[in-house]
Amino acid sequence: MGAEPVLAVEGLRVTFPAPGGAAVRAVDGLDLAVAAGETVGIVGESGSGKSAAMLAVMGLLPGRARVGGSVRFRGEELLGRPEKELRRLRGGKLAMVFQDPGSSLNPVLTVGRQIAEAVRAHQGGSRGDARRRAVELLAAVGVPSPATAVDRHPHELSGGMRQRVLIATAVANDPEVLILDEATTALDVTVQAQVLELVASIQARTGCAVLLVSHDLGVVAGLADRVAVVYAGRVVEHGPVDDVLGAPVHPYTRALLDCLPRATAGPRVRLTPIAGQPPSPAALPAGCPFHPRCPAAVTGPGGPCDARVPAPVAVAPGHEAACHFVAPASRDRRGAGAAP
């Protein structure tokens, strides 16, 4: 981690009121930090709270959501700031790209207008200048013939091109933090490869911090420096990408890797599914949220898994896992993982 983080999230909680009084705990104490020039991958299954966390960082959650914890950008707390100040940050220093390239763009405006508006909202300047900048940006994200593309409407562009336009809008004001929430999930693999390539080159050029949210471990493996594995609204394991995906210690990370079929590498073996279903955030299990599905869980009298929430334990420098049975680094049992 070394460098001072640009964005630091600590103990983030997002709760939605649900009919019948019960609360939906979408994010339940999530910690995360990303430094300039660094890419942090956030992986987890659908419903694990990745998007809710990112929206909380951006201050984009609907009003009825309750947010707790801390989100610091360059050391300054963002939670609880007035909307006006947040608006100045959003699209400026903090930018986000969503999954659905269709609904994130306004269908009645040309893409040039939409990029130009993003530019002028933060940098001012004349319409002409903003338009020239839009052409530049479209060229930078690899949209062919940008001079004519600025005058197109979103529906005239393919999904991959729309995603490039969204990325162009997001990087228009040289953000320091770029959040990509499943930005390539709706795209085909060959187009996904193009877009990931683009993100990497933008980051190499601008040195921004990237938060890459995906349910696809493969996408994260290629691009991220560090990975955070999210389960039931919490980070259960995080660390350098090689450690977390190469030598995982948390039972969930291991199980997740075991149940993935591989496209090219390794022998074809029978997959090991994880028992049961991801928990409903409206009824999270007590103790370790993974215990109902965990092959290594020790529950019942004396067993800690259904009684206490495991705290993160450092298994190696910068590599932490939240499991009662992970051996701490001092004993140097890195990679030994869940004991029982």
């Binding site: 693999v189 060959t190 996904q192 490869a193 696809d216 471990l217 493969g218 996408v219 994260v220 493996a221 290629g222 991220a224 990408v241 090689d242 995906l245 190469g246 890797l257 993935l260 591989r262 496209a263 090219t264 590498a265």
Partner: peptide
């Protein structure tokens, strides 16, 4: 091209 674009969850290989 399709096969080469399919991501794999193995960071060293991917890099």
């Amino acid at each position: 091209a399709l096969l080469s674009a399919a991501p794999e969850p193995d960071p060293r290989r991917e890099r």
